[in-house]
Simulated scan of single mutants.
Amino acid sequence: MDIPVAENVLGTLGAVCWSVQLLPQIIINYKRHNTEGLQGSMMLLWAAAGVPLGVYNIVEEFNIALRIQPQILTTLSLVTWAQCLYYGKGFSIAKCISAVVPLLLVLGGIEAGLIFALKEAKSRGLEWPFILMAVLSAALLAAGVLRHYWDIYVHRTVRGISFFFVGIDAAGDLFSLVSVVFGPALDVLGMVIYGTELVLWLGIFICGGIFNFAPWLRERSRKTESPQEVDSVMLHPMPSSTSVFRTVSGNVVERRGRRFAGGSENTD
């Protein structure tokens, strides 16, 4: 079966975006040495979502890029979850590895078993297993993003998550969605999987504009304040999602945490 060039190109772009989507978040976590605001449960939900998504994409014979895409999602999600354990809960590196590696192996084993099971179901003409995999994929991906909606509702800011990461992830969803549209046959369930998460990420962007960018822009436009006061404006008592919107109070929280952990701090 010939797969259209457009499907391959768009699927590859989607896979590339999903390959690097969590890297900006991982780098930000490392640089600031905390995962405040980042939901560890979101990472676990995404890691789990990679299983039914991988099964669906492989058995439905999507292009190669979309078949490996879920495996990358699961792996990077577990790496980010390990950061949540290390920075957020104080786990040692050994404990993080002992938590992540067995879980990765279990998820991989479950996916392999389900692939064989769904291939058998496909040969018998059964449709409900595919519907189940698609629903599970969409539900787990959506649940992961929805954890941030609750955090936004509680704290009235988009905190702990990189907007660059959100943009890459949303682009990956968009490219993957269009790739499914250009496939040999229109796969409605595949469109639902990627379309659901895309809509939720767009909502995160809107919340970021309302709660993060708009207040920052208003403060920057105040002509009566000195430049030093403008740069030191407090938008929220917690560190926000990007270095552009980091606040003084957030830095104070981090400095206090480092004092507590190390006993002293070099203020130079």
Rank of each mutant, 00 (worst) to 15 (best):
M1E: 02
P4L: 01
V5G: 00
V5R: 00
V9A: 01
G11K: 00
G11I: 00
L13F: 01
G14R: 04
G14V: 07
A15R: 01
V16C: 08
V16M: 08
W18I: 00
W18Y: 02
Q21T: 07
L22H: 02
L22A: 02
L22D: 01
I27T: 12
N29M: 07
N34Y: 08
T35M: 09
E36Q: 10
L38Q: 03
Q39A: 13
Q39I: 03
Q39M: 07
Q39S: 14
G40Q: 03
M42N: 10
M43F: 05
L44M: 13
L44N: 07
L45H: 08
W46Y: 11
A47L: 11
A49N: 03
L53M: 15
V55M: 05
V55R: 03
I58E: 01
I58P: 00
V59I: 12
V59Y: 10
V59Q: 09
E61I: 14
L66G: 14
I68W: 14
I68V: 15
P70Y: 04
L73S: 13
T75Q: 09
L76P: 04
L76Y: 10
S77F: 06
S77E: 04
L78V: 09
V79M: 14
W81V: 13
Q83D: 15
L85H: 15
K89N: 10
K89M: 08
K89H: 11
I97R: 09
I97H: 06
I97M: 09
S98M: 14
S98W: 14
A99T: 14
V101A: 12
L107S: 07
G108C: 10
G109Y: 04
G109P: 05
I110D: 04
A112Y: 10
G113Q: 10
L114A: 11
F116N: 02
L118M: 13
K119H: 15
L126V: 12
I131G: 12
M133R: 02
A134H: 04
A134N: 05
V135I: 10
L136D: 06
A139H: 01
G144S: 06
R147S: 11
H148S: 07
Y149A: 13
W150G: 12
R156M: 09
V158Q: 13
G160E: 06
G160H: 05
G160A: 07
S162G: 09
S162Y: 08
S162V: 08
S162N: 10
F163G: 11
F164H: 15
F164V: 15
V166E: 10
G167V: 13
A170Y: 15
D173R: 15
L174T: 12
F175Y: 15
S179F: 06
V180Q: 08
V180N: 08
V181L: 12
F182N: 12
G183L: 12
G183N: 15
P184L: 14
P184S: 15
A185I: 10
D187T: 05
D187Y: 07
M191R: 06
I193Y: 04
V199T: 12
C207R: 08
N212K: 01
W216Y: 03
W216V: 00
W216S: 00
R220P: 00
R222Q: 05
V230D: 00
V230H: 01
M234A: 02
M234I: 10
L235N: 09
P239V: 06
S243P: 00
V244Y: 07
F245D: 13
V248R: 06
V248D: 02
V252S: 05
V253D: 08
E254C: 07
R259N: 00
G262D: 04
N266M: 04
